[in-house]
Structures are given as C-alpha cells and as structure tokens.
C-alpha cells in the first residue's frame, strides 16, 4: 500500500470512527432520555429563578429589563455547565477501562476525543436552542437582526469548544468520575464571579475586576452587544473589548488545554 492511500485510509478512519463514537453518545441520550431532558431544562429553571425570584430586586444600570440583561448570561452558563458533561463522559470511560479498550483497537486514536467533542457540541447546540426558546417566552429578544445573533451563537459554541478541552483534560488528569462533584461546585463561584447575573460595578473593586476579566464575562458582554440587550457599559479595557476577548479567551483556553489533553492521553501509555 502506498503512503498516499494509507494516509487516505487513516483520514477516512478518523472521520468514520469519530462519527461512530458520536453515534454512541447519541445512543446514550436515547437510552437515558430523562437525564437528557433534565440537563436541558436545568438552565431553564435558573432563568425562572433569577428572572422572577431575584429579578424584582435587581436593577440594570441604565434601566433596562433584568431578563433581557440576564438571558445572555444564562446562555453562557448553559455552555459552562457543559464542562461537567464532557468531564463525566471521559472520566467514566477512563475509569472503567473503556478508553483502554479503544486504545487497543486498530481505530484512529484522535476519534476517541473527536467523537466526544462532536457529541458535546451537538448537546450544547440543543441546549442553546432550548434556552433561546425559553428566552423568547420570558420576553427576551434580539434587537440587531439575525446576522449578529448568529455571530453571538457562534461565540457561545466557541466557548463550549474551549470547555470541552478543559473538561477532557481534567478528566484525564483526575480519572475519577466521583470528582465531578468538585467541578459541579466550582462552576457556581466561577459563574457568579462574572457579569452573568449582576454588573461587576456593584461588586467590591477587586472582585469586580476579577469578574470583568472572567472569560465567561467576555462572551456574556459580547452576546449582549450582538443581541442588543442591556449591558452595564463599563469603561475598563475588558468591557470595551468584549468582542475581541470573546474570541481570544476561548482560543487561549484551547491553546492551553488541547495540547495538555493530548499529552495526558499519550501519558496513559507511560
């Protein structure tokens, strides 16, 4: 077999193996629809809680509607919660020996993470559709037309891609499905220390600065800008360059966690 045809074979295998493993993840959802639905509806519950329970006490700088302010934050949180799904799937496969079985097969090694990434992205896209519908029902709208709205959706999915790699890395590092509890707890302070729920200017100075520079805040602020929802303005560099940061932060996270994940994956063989 010549090198070219071997290369072509490899590429075709990488694609088909990735699709086969994506199919495996989809089969999980059809076998456990309850879990899928609970996962999709959890952010909806948060919208109702924050939008109606706490929303009355919240005031948006410049006097906008709190739910208009909140929804872009909740879209981002939906992406952030996704890191738990990525972690859980990879950690459980690694702990149970399924990853080793894959590694002992004559399949494309990239497909193990590739399949995960495609499946997680599909899952998050579905979650985003549910949240957009939920937002529509509680009165949130996009005001700048379809194109900027689609760019915002693109930025949300870009953030999710970055978190897939972070989730995969953590799972290969800890290899313990139980440790997901720590991740579930940590997602909250990281989410709250951002501009998703309240404007950072209402926080103590140092905390506000942390919140403004939170990678999640960049995507939230960029989405508010693109959807035409009320933000808090702010004159810091982070607030002024939200769009650029919403691209730069996820790319930086990928640049860090993708090589780390590949290295960890190789170290399974050490």
């Amino acid at each position: 077999m010549s090198t070219t045809t071997l290369g072509a074979h490899r590429l075709r295998w990488a694609v088909t193996d990735t699709l086969v493993l994506t199919g495996r993840a989809l089969a999980h959802w059809t076998r456990q629809p309850g879990q899928l639905i609970a996962g999709l509806l959890f952010p909806v519950l948060l919208v109702l809680m924050f939008g109606y329970l706490f929303g009355g006490a919240m005031s948006v700088p410049g006097g906008g509607d709190y739910r208009e302010f909140l929804l872009p934050g909740m879209f981002v949180m939906t992406m952030a919660f996704g890191i738990e799904a990525s972690y859980a799937a990879v950690a459980s496969d690694t702990a149970r020996g399924v990853t080793d079985r894959f590694r002992s097969l004559p399949m494309a090694r990239s497909a193990v993470v590739g399949g995960r990434a495609v499946a997680d992205l599909l899952h998050s896209a579905a979650g985003l559709v549910v949240m957009l519908g939920c937002g529509w029902l509680v009165g949130w709208r996009w005001h700048n037309g379809l194109a900027p709205a689609l760019v915002a959706v693109g930025l949300l999915l870009l953030l999710r891609v970055a978190l897939i790699w972070a989730g995969i890395y953590l799972a290969l590092l800890l290899r313990r499905p139980e440790s997901i509890v720590a991740l579930q707890i940590l997602v909250w302070p990281v989410g709250f220390t951002s501009n998703a729920y309240v404007p950072p200017e209402t926080m103590p100075g140092w905390l506000g600065a942390v919140a403004e520079w939170n990678p999640l805040s960049a995507t939230v602020a960029a989405c508010r800008e693109l959807f035409g929802n009320p933000g808090w303005g702010g004159d810091s560099f982070a607030a002024q360059h939200a769009l650029a940061l919403a691209v730069a932060w996820p790319l930086l996270l990928v640049a860090v966690f993708l090589p780390l994940s590949v290295r960890r994956y190789r170290q399974l063989g050490r």
Binding site: W13, T16, D17, V20, L21, R24, A27, H28, R31, Q32, R96, G97, V98, D100, R101, F102, L105, P106, M107
Partner: peptide, 24 residues
C-alpha cells in the same frame, strides 16, 4: 482487561455493534 470494559448504558447488541464498527 480487569474491568469489564463495556458501555454500561448501551445494550449488549449496541456494544458489540459499536466495537464491530470501530474495527471498520
């Protein structure tokens, strides 16, 4: 291996089909 390295969520048939597909 020492663990039964099969997918707990899937059925027996789905598992074997999956591994067959991964053998191309």
């Amino acid at each position: 291996g020492q663990h039964a390295a099969v997918d707990e969520v899937l059925t027996g048939r789905q598992n074997l089909t999956l591994f067959g597909r991964l053998h191309h």
